[in-house]
């Protein structure tokens, strides 16, 4: 016999959510969704959750089990029951409606923000557009997304910043950024490089861990980053951070922590500095506080603090031994 500790919530009856325990012994080879259904159908009909296909393709039945998002239909009950107990809660980062049902509206709004449809050339061929198997493989994984919201639920950034597009929308974006039939690649990566986009991803990998399909958003986000850098969309802290980081490795085999923050906020190369000056003058003329000032002032306190404690990286940056081989590899790969 296992205990199903389920977070209950019904604002029609009670304002605050609470946990209720149900006893049920799931037969071998049955899913967590089967258990939920048995509990609903034989113990408490008021228990509410979403479900439909029960074959891990419709994306309806994502819930949190033991604190992490899963698809209820995809997991064997015995695999999620730990020490005879499983705790079931609604998905995170979304407002609960009732019991395990949450409000998906903000999730869909973010999907809408990434121009979630193909923008092909106007002229249509008589038959299909050709796409090589290699080109197909670039969008193969992202196109498996079932919009279940598991990644969105457990995303570490969304927990603190609603403005982040989130893993599902960004995976959907990669579906088009990587599509050889789309003509808006550059415009897409420009939009995705804005605040709330790809560079706000914190690399925590939660979305990969929770994704029930091969879509695995974090990997897709990284793929968009590579395209953005290739397409020359460099005028933002995220892109400059990547460029500065890689440049530093190229020169010394090792990260120069003194230079990285300064280059990230804009002091990167002649062209970068020209851009920086132009952008910030524009802001000044529009009566806004130039971001570079905010950025620089953001760096000063932590820098001083570290300096005081002797935590500043060596002023003279040392290379790794045999740095020539590192440089050679960069050259060989045309970086």
């Amino acid at each position: 016999m296992a205990t199903f500790k389920i977070k209950r919530y019904n604002p029609e009856i009670q304002r605050e959510p609470y946990y209720e325990e149900f006893q049920y012994d799931p037969p071998e080879g049955t899913t967590l969704l089967d258990s939920l259904n048995e509990i609903k159908w034989t113990q408490d009909g008021t228990l509410s959750y979403r479900m439909s296909c029960r074959s891990a393709i419709c994306g309806s039945c994502a819930v949190k089990a033991n604190g992490h998002a899963i698809l209820a239909c995809q997991r064997q009950a015995e695999h999620v029951i730990k020490n005879d107990t499983v705790v079931l809660e609604p998905l995170g980062n979304m407002k609960p409606i009732k019991d395990l049902v949450v409000d998906f509206d903000p999730f869909w709004e973010k999907i809408n923000k990434v121009t979630p449809y193909l923008k092909p050339e106007e002229t249509k061929p008589e038959k299909e557009r050709h796409q090589s198997q290699a080109q197909f493989s670039i969008i193969d994984d992202s196109s498996t997304c079932i919009m279940c919201g598991a990644c969105y639920s457990d995303c570490n950034v969304l927990e603190v910043d609603d403005n982040f597009l989130g893993p599902a929308a960004l995976a959907k974006a990669q579906r088009f950024v990587g599509d050889s039939r789309d003509k808006d690649r550059k415009a897409r990566v420009e939009q995705l490089s804005e605040p709330g986009g790809i560079w706000d991803c914190t690399h925590c990998g939660e979305c990969v861990e929770r994704c029930p399909k091969p879509a695995e958003p974090f990997h897709r986000i990284k793929e968009i980053m590579t395209v953005a850098l290739e397409e020359g969309v460099h005028n933002n802290n995220g892109a400059r951070h990547a460029l500065s980081f890689t440049k530093s490795i190229k020169h010394s085999g090792r990260l120069n922590e003194n230079v990285l923050p300064v280059e990230s906020i804009g002091f990167l190369g002649v062209k970068g500095i020209v851009n920086l000056v132009q952008d910030n003058l524009k802001m000044l003329m529009q009566g806004k506080v130039p971001t570079v000032i905010k950025d620089v002032f953001g760096l000063i306190p932590v820098g001083l603090r570290m300096l005081k404690k002797g935590k500043i990286p060596p002023i003279i940056h040392h290379s790794v031994d045999d740095v020539d081989d590192v440089k050679r590899i960069f050259k060989e790969l045309k970086q």
Binding site: T226, L229, H241, A242, F245, T246, V320, D325, L333
Partner: peptide
């Protein structure tokens, strides 16, 4: 390992996945 280069911190791979893997 004095001649080993930086792991790339998941940042070098943003620019070039194969470069990070090669290092």
């Amino acid at each position: 390992m004095k001649s080993a280069a930086c792991c790339g911190a998941g940042v070098v791979s943003e620019q070039s996945p194969i470069l990070a893997d090669a290092l």
